[in-house]
Design a protein around this nucleic acid. Structure first.
Lengths: 129, 129, 129, 129
DNA sequence: GTGGTCTAGACCACG
DNA sequence: GTGGTCTAGACCACC
C-alpha cells in the first residue's frame, strides 16, 4: 500500500476503511482484520493503525470488543449517513477546487458531463486534450 | 484565510496561487504581492510563504527577480498546461474517491448529473440533454 | 453486566464482590457462585473471574476449599473493617476530586447537602435538621 | 507526579488538566505549558502527554495553534458546563458506590453529613441547618 | 490470539 | 521554540 506524502497516514487509513465499509467490503457487524494484520497488510506501524481505528471508534463507525477485535457498527443508518456525507464532501471539494480556478458553473457542468461520457464510453479516452 | 489542519500550509498556499494564476487573477508576467504582503494577507509566517513560492519557482510557474519580487511566468503554454493538469487531477481524484466507495460508473454519472443540476439551478439545465 | 472501559475488569469484579459481601448479599461463611457461574452471569471469561477471586483470597475476604468452591470469610471483624475502609475511601476520593477542582470546604459541604436533599426527595428530609 | 496504577496515565492527565482549568489555574484563553514542559513536570513521555491533550482538544476544552502551543478555550459557558458535569459525576460515583455497599439513602445522607462536619471542624458547621 | 498503554527517539511543519 | 507524525519495541489485560 502506498500513501500520499502530504497527508497523515493514519487519516488515509481512516478514509480507506471508511470507503471499504461503504463499499460493502466489510458488512454491518463484520470483524475487521486485527491491528497486527492491518499493520502487515498496509506496511504501517501498529501504533499508526491504532490511531486510525481510534478515530473510527470515536465516530462510532466501528467498536471494539476487548480481546476479540474491532467490528463494524451494526447501525445501518449510521453507515448510510456516512456514505451520503462522504459523497457530498467529495463533490463539494471537486466543485470548490474547480471554482477556485475561475471556472463558471456552466464550464464545470460541461467538464463533468464530458468526464462522465468518457468514463462511460467504450474506449479509454484521456481527459486532457 | 482558513487552512485545513491536516495538510501543510505551504502546500495549500502553493495550490492557492496556482489557482489564482489559472483563474487569471494574476496575468502572464504580472507581479505577485510581496512575500511580506502575502504573509499579512494570509496570516501566515513569512517563512511559510517563502517555502510555497520556492515550490512554484521550481515548477517554473513563477520566477524571481532578485530585489524586485516574484512574477508569473510569461509562458502561456505552461499555464494552459497547468490548468489542464489541475482540472484533470481534480476530476480524477473525485472519480477515484467515489469508485473507492464502491460506486459504479453509472452511479457516479448519476451523482455528477444530479450535482450539476443542483448547482445550476432549474433555469439552466444544459447537463440533461 | 456493563464494565467501565478504562479500568481492568478483574478489578471491577473484585470491587463488585467486595460490595456484595458488605451489602450482605453473601453472609459470613456463605458460598460464592462457582467460577463458571460467575463467568456466565457477568459475561466475562473464566480466567478474569479467577484473577479477581485470587485478589480477594489474598485480602482474606474469601477463602477457597479445593474442589468445593469459594467462601466468604467467617471473620465478622474483617468485613466490618473492610466496610469502614471502603466507605472512608469513597468519601475521601470524592472530597479529593472536588478539592482538585478548586472547591472550598464550604462549597463542598454545600454541594453534599444539596445532593443529599435531592436524593432523599422532599418527603423525607432527615438531612436538613 | 505519581499516578494511580489501575487507570491509564493519559486519562489521569486529562482529568488533572480539566481540574486545573476548572479551578482557575489556567484562565480562559491561557496558554498551557508546552508538551515538552508537561512531559518533564509530570515525568511522563511526550506521546502520553500528546494523547491526553488530544482528548481535551476533541472535547474542545483546549485548542491548538500551530507552532505556538495549546490554549484553554475562550468559551466560559463550556468551562462552566464542564465544571457542573464533573461535580455531578463525582457525586454520582460516590453515591453509586455507597449504594452498592447496601447503604440506604438515610445512611448515605448521614455519612455525608458526618464527613462534612469533620472536614469543616467544630467552629463552622454551616452544614447542619 | 485480541486490543491498549507507554516509552524512546527520529523527523517534519510552523513561528 | 511550538505541536504532529511515525517507528520500534516492551508490557499488560482479556479471550
Amino acid at each position: 500500500m502506498k500513501f500520499k506524502d502530504n497527508v497523515p497516514i493514519y487519516l488515509q487509513i481512516e478514509s480507506l476503511i471508511n470507503q471499504q465499509i461503504i463499499a460493502g467490503k466489510y458488512t454491518l457487524g463484520a470483524k475487521l482484520p486485527s491491528v497486527r494484520d492491518l499493520s502487515v497488510q498496509l506496511e504501517v506501524n501498529i501504533n499508526t493503525i491504532q490511531k486510525a481505528l481510534n478515530e473510527l471508534v470515536q465516530e462510532q463507525i466501528i467498536f471494539t470488543k476487548r480481546g476479540r477485535g474491532n467490528f463494524v457498527t451494526t447501525d445501518a443508518h449510521l453507515v448510510a449517513q456516512l456514505k451520503a456525507q462522504l459523497i457530498h464532501q467529495t463533490l463539494e471539494n471537486m466543485d470548490e477546487s474547480l471554482q477556485a480556478m475561475g471556472l463558471s458553473k456552466q464550464e464545470i457542468a460541461h467538464y463533468l458531463k464530458l468526464y462522465s461520457q468518457e468514463r462511460m464510453g467504450l474506449d479509454d479516452q484521456n481527459f486532457t486534450n
